[in-house]
Write a protein that binds this DNA or RNA. Sequence first.
DNA 1: CTAGTTGCAAAGAGTTTGCATGGCG
DNA 2: CGCCATGCAAACTCTTTGCAACTAG
Lengths: 132, 132
Amino acid sequence: MTKYSTDQRKKILNFFSTHPHEIFSARQIFDMLDDSHISISTIYRNLSELEKAGKITRCNKAGTREAFFKYTHLEECKHCIHLSCKKCGKIFHMDKAQSDDLISKTAQNEQFFIEQTDSVLYGVCGNCQHCK
Amino acid sequence: MTKYSTDQRKKILNFFSTHPHEIFSARQIFDMLDDSHISISTIYRNLSELEKAGKITRCNKAGTREAFFKYTHLEECKHCIHLSCKKCGKIFHMDKAQSDDLISKTAQNEQFFIEQTDSVLYGVCGNCQHCK
DNA sequence: CTAGTTGCAAAGAGTTTGCATGGCG
DNA sequence: CGCCATGCAAACTCTTTGCAACTAG
């Protein structure tokens, strides 16, 4: 679907690749790329394209109504569960061994087949735990 | 905050208690209680009240923009991680022992403190796994 | 009686879409 | 030069809110 490489597209993808461990809403990206004057509809259209292309992943953030997106640059992103800090918004990766263990145990014990890609656990990260 | 017991309130809560293992959006409840002619704003206001009162819990559903709610009738709901089936929308409870294990291991290994209440893992349940 | 609750319609947030213009290849 | 992408504004969806009418206690 994506045929041309436009300036706007490059800037949006570049933004994600330079912030690989955080999640962002369309509005946040719009604001942070303010000096590029990219229209909000272009942001939305590109986020959808990038999502379809598998370069970013759509996810929810507890207590918000907006869609959030995170960069999926790493192979590991596809093979482990994500942890999202409610305070700073950063994304962490659960240890692969533990992810796998959880998934297989849940399949066995509960007959439930977790899909890592869509699954985000919420909580507070070590950093934010310290500062009140 | 909830002082009076109105007909609308009773019907909404009753709806949840008779569907304890599924999640619903405001619109779905509105449609399913159609013959009671409860206005959509009353649905929303009561969902907020019931949430504050701890009788239902707000949660996200992957790939949707709406808020979903589930009945929190059980004590166990407050102490374990939830599993949401992407196909049928039903909610399952992860075994408490496994929930606890996961939370303490993640705290240790990753320095990340999961909050059960907000955390929903997505996947496919045993039932839906069988039917394609 | 009177304060909480409802219904309606209007306002708000977030997101999508139609259409003319612009720019990549 | 042709088609895709962009920008703008309007439309849409989900949710909240103001206000007058209604009702539980």
